[in-house]
Amino acid sequence: MDAKAVKSQLRSRIMEARKAMPAEQRKEYSAAVCQKLLQCDRLAEARAIMAFHPFDTELDIWPFVEAAKVRGQEIWLPRTVPSEKRLIPYRYSGPEMLRQGVYGIWEPDPVLAEEADLTRLDAVVVPGVAFDARGGRMGYGGGYYDRFLAALAVRPYLVGVAFSMQVVEQVPREPHDIKLDGLVTERGFFQR
Protein backbone atom coordinates (compact mmCIF):
# COMPACT_ATOMS: atom_id res chain seq x y z
CA MET A 1 0.00 0.00 0.00
CA ASP A 2 1.39 3.44 -0.91
CA ALA A 3 1.91 6.29 1.57
CA LYS A 4 -1.23 8.18 0.48
CA ALA A 5 -3.45 5.13 1.04
CA VAL A 6 -1.86 4.43 4.44
CA LYS A 7 -2.37 8.08 5.42
CA SER A 8 -5.99 7.98 4.28
CA GLN A 9 -6.75 4.89 6.39
CA LEU A 10 -4.98 6.31 9.44
CA ARG A 11 -6.73 9.67 9.01
CA SER A 12 -10.16 7.99 8.93
CA ARG A 13 -9.41 5.83 11.97
CA ILE A 14 -8.12 8.71 14.12
CA MET A 15 -10.90 11.11 13.13
CA GLU A 16 -13.56 8.51 13.97
CA ALA A 17 -11.95 7.87 17.37
CA ARG A 18 -11.69 11.61 18.05
CA LYS A 19 -15.33 12.06 17.10
CA ALA A 20 -16.29 9.30 19.57
CA MET A 21 -14.55 11.07 22.47
CA PRO A 22 -17.12 12.44 24.96
CA ALA A 23 -17.42 16.26 24.88
CA GLU A 24 -16.59 16.57 28.59
CA GLN A 25 -13.39 14.56 28.16
CA ARG A 26 -12.45 16.67 25.10
CA LYS A 27 -12.93 19.82 27.21
CA GLU A 28 -10.90 18.45 30.14
CA TYR A 29 -8.02 17.30 27.92
CA SER A 30 -8.05 20.58 25.97
CA ALA A 31 -7.70 22.54 29.23
CA ALA A 32 -4.74 20.35 30.26
CA VAL A 33 -3.02 20.94 26.91
CA CYS A 34 -3.56 24.70 27.16
CA GLN A 35 -1.90 24.73 30.60
CA LYS A 36 1.11 22.86 29.21
CA LEU A 37 1.34 25.28 26.26
CA LEU A 38 1.32 28.24 28.66
CA GLN A 39 4.14 26.64 30.69
CA CYS A 40 6.35 26.02 27.63
CA ASP A 41 9.38 28.35 27.79
CA ARG A 42 9.83 28.52 24.01
CA LEU A 43 6.22 29.67 23.58
CA ALA A 44 6.43 32.06 26.55
CA GLU A 45 9.47 33.75 24.95
CA ALA A 46 7.82 34.08 21.53
CA ARG A 47 6.70 37.54 20.45
CA ALA A 48 4.52 36.30 17.57
CA ILE A 49 2.74 32.93 17.62
CA MET A 50 0.66 31.51 14.80
CA ALA A 51 -2.17 29.44 16.24
CA PHE A 52 -5.44 28.20 14.76
CA HIS A 53 -9.14 28.35 15.50
CA PRO A 54 -10.28 24.82 16.43
CA PHE A 55 -13.18 23.29 14.57
CA ASP A 56 -15.35 20.20 14.85
CA THR A 57 -13.73 17.73 17.27
CA GLU A 58 -10.25 19.30 17.32
CA LEU A 59 -8.52 20.03 20.58
CA ASP A 60 -9.64 23.48 21.78
CA ILE A 61 -6.58 25.72 22.15
CA TRP A 62 -8.66 28.89 22.48
CA PRO A 63 -7.91 29.34 26.23
CA PHE A 64 -4.19 29.34 25.33
CA VAL A 65 -4.77 31.89 22.54
CA GLU A 66 -6.63 34.25 24.88
CA ALA A 67 -4.06 33.86 27.69
CA ALA A 68 -1.15 34.49 25.29
CA LYS A 69 -2.86 37.68 24.09
CA VAL A 70 -3.34 38.80 27.70
CA ARG A 71 0.36 38.29 28.41
CA GLY A 72 1.15 40.61 25.48
CA GLN A 73 1.97 38.18 22.72
CA GLU A 74 0.96 38.76 19.12
CA ILE A 75 -1.32 35.96 17.92
CA TRP A 76 -1.79 35.14 14.26
CA LEU A 77 -4.50 33.02 12.71
CA PRO A 78 -4.33 31.55 9.21
CA ARG A 79 -6.78 32.22 6.40
CA THR A 80 -7.09 29.35 3.95
CA VAL A 81 -6.91 30.16 0.25
CA PRO A 82 -8.03 26.90 -1.45
CA SER A 83 -7.53 28.20 -5.01
CA GLU A 84 -3.82 28.64 -4.23
CA LYS A 85 -3.61 25.81 -1.65
CA ARG A 86 -1.99 28.15 0.85
CA LEU A 87 -2.34 29.75 4.26
CA ILE A 88 -2.02 33.48 4.85
CA PRO A 89 -1.63 34.50 8.50
CA TYR A 90 -3.29 37.62 9.91
CA ARG A 91 -2.90 39.30 13.29
CA TYR A 92 -5.73 38.31 15.60
CA SER A 93 -7.27 41.40 17.20
CA GLY A 94 -10.50 39.86 18.49
CA PRO A 95 -13.52 37.76 17.51
CA GLU A 96 -15.06 40.60 15.48
CA MET A 97 -12.42 40.13 12.77
CA LEU A 98 -13.30 36.48 12.17
CA ARG A 99 -15.62 34.89 9.61
CA GLN A 100 -16.34 31.32 8.65
CA GLY A 101 -14.06 30.15 5.87
CA VAL A 102 -14.52 27.62 3.13
CA TYR A 103 -14.06 24.61 5.44
CA GLY A 104 -16.33 26.05 8.13
CA ILE A 105 -13.32 27.13 10.23
CA TRP A 106 -13.38 30.59 11.81
CA GLU A 107 -10.59 32.56 10.18
CA PRO A 108 -9.53 36.18 9.66
CA ASP A 109 -11.60 38.34 7.34
CA PRO A 110 -8.99 40.03 5.10
CA VAL A 111 -11.14 43.17 4.98
CA LEU A 112 -11.00 43.54 8.78
CA ALA A 113 -7.61 42.02 9.57
CA GLU A 114 -3.98 43.02 9.12
CA GLU A 115 -1.77 40.54 7.28
CA ALA A 116 1.09 39.33 9.48
CA ASP A 117 4.76 40.07 8.82
CA LEU A 118 6.30 36.61 8.31
CA THR A 119 9.75 37.80 9.40
CA ARG A 120 8.39 38.23 12.94
CA LEU A 121 7.07 34.68 13.38
CA ASP A 122 8.66 32.94 16.38
CA ALA A 123 6.42 29.90 16.92
CA VAL A 124 3.58 27.94 15.35
CA VAL A 125 1.03 25.84 17.24
CA VAL A 126 0.17 23.24 14.62
CA PRO A 127 -3.07 21.24 14.34
CA GLY A 128 -3.26 17.80 12.78
CA VAL A 129 -4.89 14.41 12.73
CA ALA A 130 -2.03 12.11 13.80
CA PHE A 131 1.39 12.67 15.33
CA ASP A 132 4.36 10.64 16.52
CA ALA A 133 7.07 11.25 19.13
CA ARG A 134 9.72 11.84 16.44
CA GLY A 135 8.15 15.04 15.12
CA GLY A 136 5.96 13.38 12.53
CA ARG A 137 2.64 15.03 11.75
CA MET A 138 -0.20 14.11 9.44
CA GLY A 139 -2.75 16.79 8.66
CA TYR A 140 -6.06 16.68 6.86
CA GLY A 141 -4.54 15.96 3.46
CA GLY A 142 -4.39 19.40 1.83
CA GLY A 143 -0.69 20.07 2.51
CA TYR A 144 -1.43 23.66 3.60
CA TYR A 145 0.86 23.68 6.65
CA ASP A 146 3.73 21.86 4.94
CA ARG A 147 3.69 24.37 2.05
CA PHE A 148 3.41 27.35 4.41
CA LEU A 149 6.26 26.17 6.67
CA ALA A 150 8.52 25.19 3.76
CA ALA A 151 8.21 28.70 2.28
CA LEU A 152 9.37 30.53 5.44
CA ALA A 153 12.84 32.09 5.27
CA VAL A 154 13.50 31.35 8.96
CA ARG A 155 12.11 28.26 10.68
CA PRO A 156 10.01 29.08 13.76
CA TYR A 157 9.53 26.77 16.74
CA LEU A 158 6.90 24.19 15.70
CA VAL A 159 4.74 22.48 18.31
CA GLY A 160 1.85 20.16 17.56
CA VAL A 161 -1.19 19.81 19.78
CA ALA A 162 -3.28 16.67 20.05
CA PHE A 163 -5.18 14.31 22.27
CA SER A 164 -2.97 11.37 23.26
CA MET A 165 -5.24 9.06 21.24
CA GLN A 166 -3.96 10.87 18.12
CA VAL A 167 -0.36 9.83 18.81
CA VAL A 168 0.76 6.77 16.86
CA GLU A 169 3.99 4.77 16.71
CA GLN A 170 5.00 6.32 13.40
CA VAL A 171 3.21 8.70 11.06
CA PRO A 172 3.70 7.75 7.39
CA ARG A 173 6.10 10.35 6.01
CA GLU A 174 6.64 11.77 2.56
CA PRO A 175 9.64 13.91 1.52
CA HIS A 176 7.67 17.19 1.72
CA ASP A 177 6.42 16.58 5.29
CA ILE A 178 7.84 19.08 7.80
CA LYS A 179 8.91 17.67 11.18
CA LEU A 180 7.77 19.35 14.40
CA ASP A 181 10.02 20.33 17.30
CA GLY A 182 7.57 19.25 19.97
CA LEU A 183 4.14 17.84 20.73
CA VAL A 184 1.75 18.57 23.58
CA THR A 185 -1.00 16.20 24.67
CA GLU A 186 -3.00 16.01 27.89
CA ARG A 187 -0.35 13.54 29.11
CA GLY A 188 2.64 15.81 28.68
CA PHE A 189 5.07 17.69 26.50
CA PHE A 190 7.36 15.79 24.15
CA GLN A 191 10.33 17.25 22.32
CA ARG A 192 12.42 15.50 19.72
Rank of each mutant, 00 (worst) to 15 (best):
M15Y: 02
L10W: 01
R26K: 15
V126F: 02
F131S: 03
F163G: 07
D177H: 00
V81M: 04
L180Q: 02
F189Y: 15
M15L: 15
K69M: 15
E115T: 08
Q191W: 11
Q100H: 07
P95D: 14
R187Y: 14
I75Y: 04
L77T: 14
Y90K: 06
W76C: 05
E84H: 01
R91N: 03
D122R: 00
G135A: 07
A116F: 01
T80Q: 04
K36S: 11
R187D: 15
M165H: 15
Q170G: 07
A32V: 08
G142E: 02
K7M: 11
W106S: 10
A32H: 03
S12C: 10
I61Q: 00
E115I: 11
G142I: 05
C40N: 08
K27N: 10
C40L: 13
V124N: 00
P175M: 11
T185Q: 02
V102P: 05
A68R: 01
W106G: 06
Y90Q: 06
Q39C: 06
Q170Y: 06
Y157M: 07
D56W: 10
C34G: 01
Q35D: 12
E84F: 02
E186R: 08
K7I: 12
D132H: 00
V81W: 04
D117W: 05
M138N: 02
I49V: 14
G101C: 08
R79Q: 14
T57Q: 09
V171F: 07
V125F: 07
V161C: 08
I88H: 02
F55K: 13
V161D: 04
S164M: 13
